[in-house]
Design a protein around this nucleic acid. Structure first.
Lengths: 119, 119
DNA sequence: AGTCGATATATCTATATCGCCACATAGCGA
DNA sequence: TCGCTATGTGGCGATATAGATATATCGACT
């Protein structure tokens, strides 16, 4: 007989869909990639410029950019010797902005909470 | 002498800030955690209910819930023997909804692109 | 062709994390 | 107090990934 209970009983969302979504968030889960995106928010940058700005090694930057490209967040076009990168999905701005402001609010709330402790 | 060039030259965003943001996205980067959040979107659930609904082991669910709690996304209160979980940050809904609709659009675009290939 | 500069890829090591197991802890009732 | 149930925790093996180094590729220039 076949084992139909292997997967979740109430599988409203399929595993493939969840993996797709998780992969997108995973691309945003590394500080170095966030740094690259942050630099790219100022506009198009060559890989060399990103290496310079990120302070990381060229090979690492190249790999991180490949991850962001595979996640559909960064587009890359070759211009002669150099490769020009740009954010290709506006959702990146929104996601990061939302997350940042939310974190800021939380930190401020905690700070306010702590400031009460002066007897 | 001190090595001041260790970190990035143009460090607009500090490493700590980037790590904070990355940690939040990292919490959303696992399919199992997304599944738990998806179940929780229907309302409060006990750990046992989540174990049932997720189809995973109890220990795993417990650990994933701890990750979500540490990320400030899930709140847990004890009620006698059981522990009741709920989404504590409305940003979770927004983030997932944005990501899902974006992915849907992309998939539909690709499907449309592929449908042109019938000579 | 030969060389150089910009970028991608292969390989290695260290570290992180997932799922599974066994066990620990903590309320609650008999 | 004893045992049962619900949940948290620690250890283990397997896998994934970041960073570093070396090497390959590819276009431009002479």
């Amino acid at each position: 007989m076949s084992k139909t209970k292997v997967t979740a009983p109430t599988k409203v969302l399929s595993n493939v869909a969840l993996e797709l979504i998780a992969a997108r968030f995973r691309a945003l889960s590394e500080p170095m990639r966030l740094r690259l995106l942050h630099v790219l928010m100022q506009g198009e940058q060559t890989v060399g410029q990103l290496v310079e700005a990120s302070g990381s090694g060229q090979a690492n930057v190249s790999k991180h950019l490949a991850v962001l490209r595979d996640a559909g967040m960064v587009a890359m076009r070759k211009e002669g010797l150099t490769t020009v990168c740009a954010i290709s999905d506006p959702i990146v701005h929104e996601l990061c902005e939302m997350m940042c402001s939310r974190l800021k609010d939380e930190m401020e709330a905690k700070a306010a909470e702590l400031s009460r402790f002066k007897p």
